[in-house]
Design a protein around this nucleic acid. Structure first.
Lengths: 256, 256
DNA sequence: GAGTGGAATCGAACACTGTACGAGATCCCC
DNA sequence: GGGGATCTCGTACAGTGTTCGATTCCACTC
């Protein structure tokens, strides 16, 4: 089943590739999830351990702070040893990304309205993303086909189905909700990143924004409105406001 | 006003920095938009020209395909010449990102319901992002403080204000809409990227997804539902569905 | 215990990245 | 023509992901 003489780099081939070996240069869709993993025999170093260390490094230093050499150092091994367990950095990121999804608490659709269940899931997603900011940069880069991401998607889908959606609209509703959460949270990350990179100084930051929006009355008014409020609190309120709107809109589509 | 003996790398300093020059090592919030640009005297090479070339390169080869050396080659100059006009690559990306925003057609809030105006803007945003997929990877990385992005935000805000929203809710509504569009579109980019990187083969892709979702009945059902439909069309329909839901939800918040 | 073969590690090397630096070129104005 | 500002760019440095081949390690059989 598992041919150990092949390295991880031998991508699986289509029938076509086998018929015309060497001639066909086209690559094809490839993901960690479409390939059998290395068997983790040894008790010591394993794929899981590597992924865990990668996530730690990502949390600590962000996406651009993760390098194979640093990761190797953290694991106490050479950088290139990692390539025995993982085909390349992108696939390591796929694994880390799914590990991220594994951290979410699956909503329990019992003894609650579907709105409550979905709202809880939404807040959970937001908190999770904010806790692992690097995830936001991966969302637009790789489809999430890992088991943890899929498990979460399945639970959420079931919730919408139980709510009464049918056919394609189950998935439409599901996608709508996650889209809202992603779209609301990802730009937050950009701000947090700017704060972190620049060594947060509220005054200079405020000054920068004021300068940028000067001359646009619509926006100076906007800034004035929330001038004395805690930014984090405003974001929380905005999130809840939009979430309520999305849920109401979905419900309206349910009744008809 | 513009001191030419300073290079672009001398970040603007706070009063504090000036009092204790050299001792203060802390950075601070910095963006292209908070600093005076190089005056574009020369008729030939200019900042705009560089940004335009960068966007072309980004469109052609994606975010990871843009390197200063390649950009220099495209401009017919040395790579490091670019640094005369731009402090570093991140700021070049900020400029490219705002150039991206400049491409959007500002909605005209006349002779239409606010829903129609907003829907038009949403579809415009989605098309724009899909046309420049690299934008999706920047959204979570840098706040958009450029004039074009702000102009668009201002117009959209005015639309919500005219619709009847008041106070902070103007911005909440505005954020909710853009969040939905971003969140719906960004994961699309991930799929398109996988398709492009892998040399699109619908069968292997389908096989991969089938394999990944096997064992999760919720998701196999989901896939089965849209099995024979054109993925692009499904995404369009999903986008319109969710957009309608968001608009309805916002309207509900307006009446009360 | 010796031998063997696969599992796993890793050092060296390659091509590439962003960018700091400083020497040179080019231009315009007096 | 002199001089100062503007602009170009070759070189270099530290860092990146990844390949390759040699080396070590370990469990197993004879």
């Amino acid at each position: 089943m598992f041919d150990s003489t092949r390295t991880l780099y031998d991508k699986p081939r289509t029938v076509c590739d086998c018929l015309y070996p060497g001639e066909v240069t086209g690559k094809q869709f490839t993901s960690v999830w479409t390939r059998d993993p290395r068997p983790a025999k040894s008790p010591g170093r394993s794929r899981d351990e590597i992924v865990r260390a990668a996530v730690e490094l990502l949390d600590a230093e962000g996406l651009e702070g993760l390098s194979m050499r640093k990761l190797g150092a953290r694991l106490g091994t050479g950088a290139t040893s990692i390539y025995w367990y993982v085909a390349n950095k992108d696939e390591l990121l796929e694994l880390a990304y799914d590990d991220f999804w594994g951290e979410i608490t699956l909503p329990e659709p019992t003894a609650q309205t579907w709105q409550q269940t979905v709202a809880a899931a939404a807040h959970g997603m937001r908190r999770l993303i904010l806790r692992h900011p690097w995830s936001g940069e991966l969302i637009g880069r790789m489809p999430s086909l890992g088991p943890n991401a899929l498990a979460f998607a399945a639970v959420l889908r079931r919730t919408f189905k139980l709510a009464g959606f049918a056919g394609l609209e189950i998935d439409y509703a599901n996608t709508t909700l996650t889209a809202y959460v992603f779209g609301m949270t990802i730009p937050e990350l950009a701000w947090n990143k700017s704060k972190a990179d620049g060594g947060y100084d509220p005054d200079t930051m405020r000054e920068a924004v004021t300068k940028a929006t000067a001359g646009i009355p619509e926006l100076t008014e906007s800034i004035h409105n929330s001038w004395d409020l805690d930014p984090d609190q405003v974001r929380e309120m905005a999130f809840s406001f939009g979430l309520g709107a999305v849920l109401d809109g979905l419900e309206a589509r349910l009744v008809t």
